[in-house]
């Protein structure tokens, strides 16, 4: 159900996510300290290549990691197998990527 490629993809995406999760949490804590309005946040993110790369990479890593993780749960706890399992993994991955990419584009593209 998990072969070497999926295993490596999930481990590598986890590796990428470790610093990004910490950065994301730090940004969230900073942003809600009462000082930043929506306009101020967008003022900093729109047109910023740094934030585009930060959250763009994050979204890709999350899509890969979550899709493979849910594949395992769907198999071991839900009994899904074969093509249905592959289909679920790709739909979850593509769905997360689409939603995440839309959000990243919305806050970083001016």
């Amino acid at each position: 159900m998990l072969d070497l490629r999926l295993y490596v993809a999930q481990r590598l995406s986890a590796l990428v996510m470790v610093p990004l999760v910490l950065g994301h949490i730090a940004v969230m804590i900073y942003a809600i300290q009462g000082g930043l309005s929506t306009a101020e946040i967008l003022g900093r993110t729109q047109g910023s290549l740094l934030w585009f790369l930060f959250y763009g990479t994050f979204v890709i890593a999350v899509s890969v990691h979550a899709a493979i993780g849910l594949r395992v749960i769907a198999h071991e706890w839900g009994g899904l197998r074969g093509r249905v399992l592959d289909w679920l993994m790709w739909v979850v991955g593509a769905g997360l990527l689409t939603l995440g990419a839309r959000a990243v584009l919305a806050v970083t593209v001016p």
């Binding site: 159900m1 998990l2 072969d3 070497l4 999926l6 295993y7 395992v72």
Partner: peptide
């Protein structure tokens, strides 16, 4: 041990 039912599970 690298197949579908292999050690990576």
């Amino acid at each position: 041990v690298s197949g579908k039912g292999g050690c990576h599970n």
